[in-house]
Each structure stands twice: as structure tokens, then as C-alpha cells.
């Protein structure tokens, strides 16, 4: 029960400016182990920036991010150790084009966690099977479709055995027919109990998988609640307006 009470990730008055532009205006959030949190909101509202602050890809202008009780410091060397436990999946996949599918997956574990190559390969193959890419292990990413690239990116992150997975609009750059397969993979992850924070425009998906939905706009969490609360009975006028436009 103590595990449930101390949050996996906590942000305290998180603020981020890009020059004069205040993108995050103070976000206090707690994300607990096993939780699936979906973040929705209009473009430019700060949801991706918030997500990117959680692993310090974006350095907060002020405020703190705690991961497993420790304050994240982008300048400290153990930020790499923390990031190994925070998987991230990007809108643009960002698979490594000069490495095979297998190498994409095994590089970080063998390099940073000193996992023996054979063991890493075995693990990678198992993960590839789960996402239906086992026959692509020796291909280069250029031979993969967008959906396959994104599934590879998910597997690559999973191979580090993270404690939480961050998804930054994982299906926004995909052709419509590829979306379902990727969402299916993410759904399997959430079903398996993986803590997930998902920035998404897929409202149906958010409603289905989320334990909690955050509506982020104008740099703050304007409203949050269970999917039922947020989608069926939004309180804030901005939430209502946004949902009326996307649903």
C-alpha cells in the first residue's frame, strides 16, 4: 500500500518558458504506479512540453520533477540512469535508421546496462514477437511502414525495462490504417500494468484505456478526472469547447 501512496512521478509547480513564451504555468501532478494517464488538449497548450519535462528532455524553467522520490536534475550524470527507467515514444518514431531493427533494440541495453548481447537479442526477439515484427529483426528501418516503425520504437523503449512509458502523440504521424495496430500495442502495455502517460488526440482510445484524463490548455491542467467524468460531464468551459470540437 505504501507503494500506491508515494507517486512514481511528481511535478511541483512545473514551469517552462521558451524565451518570452510561457508554455507551462505551474503544473502539480502525481502519477502513481500502474496508472494510465492520458493527456488531451489543443495544440500549443503545453501537453507535449509537460510530457517532455517528465524525463528532462525539456529542462523546466522552474519547479521540480520527482521520479521514484528523487529529484531529476538534467545536469547531473545520473539523469541517464533515471531515463533508463522512463521509456519514451515519439510522434516521429525516431528509430535509428543506420541500425537494424535488432540493433535498434539491443544497443541501449548492451551499452548502458551491460546486458550481454545474446541475452539482449533473446529479449528483443521476444518483444518483437509480441508486436508482430519478429520477421523484420534483420531489416533496416527504411523497409518498415510508419506503424511498424512506431511498434519498433515502443519495443526499443520496453527493452530497457522501464518503470513508466511516456507516449508523445504516438499515432499522430501515422497513416489512418496504421493507427489501430499501434494503439493495440499500447493497449496491451496498459493491460499488463505498465504505468503510462499518453499525450493523444485519440479520444476514443483515451476514454478506453485511461484511469485518469488530464485536460491541459494554456499551460495548466484545466481539468482532470476519470474518462467518464471528463468526457461525459466536463465542467470547465474550455474543456467543453475542446471536446465539442474533437468528438
Amino acid at each position: 500500500m505504501t507503494d500506491m501512496q508515494s507517486p512514481l512521478i511528481e511535478t511541483v509547480d512545473l514551469k517552462k518558458n521558451f524565451n518570452d513564451l510561457e508554455v507551462l504555468k505551474g503544473i502539480n501532478e502525481k502519477i502513481y504506479k500502474g496508472e494510465v494517464v492520458c493527456i488531451i488538449g489543443p495544440s500549443g497548450g503545453g501537453k507535449s512540453t509537460f510530457l517532455r519535462c517528465l524525463n528532462m528532455l525539456e529542462e523546466p524553467s522552474s519547479g521540480e520533477v520527482y521520479f521514484e522520490g528523487e529529484k531529476l536534475d538534467p545536469k547531473s550524470t545520473n539523469i541517464d540512469l533515471h531515463r533508463q527507467k522512463i521509456g519514451m515514444v515519439f510522434q516521429q518514431f525516431n528509430v535509428f535508421p543506420h541500425l537494424t531493427v535488432m540493433e535498434n533494440i539491443t544497443l541501449a541495453p548492451t551499452l548502458e546496462k551491460k546486458v550481454p548481447l545474446e541475452e539482449a537479442k533473446e529479449k528483443a526477439l521476444k518483444l518483437l514477437k509480441q508486436v508482430g515484427l519478429e520477421d523484420k529483426a534483420n531489416e533496416y528501418p527504411r523497409k518498415l511502414s510508419g506503424g511498424q516503425k512506431q511498434r519498433l520504437a515502443i519495443v526499443r523503449a520496453m527493452a530497457m525495462e522501464p518503470d513508466v512509458m511516456l507516449f508523445d502523440e504516438p499515432t499522430s504521424a501515422l497513416d489512418p490504417e496504421m493507427v489501430k495496430g499501434v494503439l493495440e500495442v499500447i493497449r496491451k502495455l496498459t493491460d499488463s500494468g505498465m504505468t503510462c502517460v499518453i499525450v493523444t488526440h485519440e479520444m476514443g482510445f483515451a476514454r478506453e484505456v485511461a484511469d485518469r484524463v488530464l485536460f491541459i490548455d494554456e499551460g495548466i491542467v484545466m481539468e482532470e478526472g476519470t474518462p467518464e467524468e471528463l468526457f461525459n460531464d466536463p465542467k470547465h468551459p474550455r474543456t467543453k469547447e475542446f471536446l465539442s470540437q474533437v468528438l
Partner: peptide, 13 residues
Amino acid sequence: DIGQSEAARSLGM
């Protein structure tokens, strides 16, 4: 692409 280094760093490299 900046996404390449972001992906690597996010893996903890």
C-alpha cells in the same frame, strides 16, 4: 535530426 539524439538520450544513453 534532433529526434535521433532525443531518442537516444530518452533511452538513458
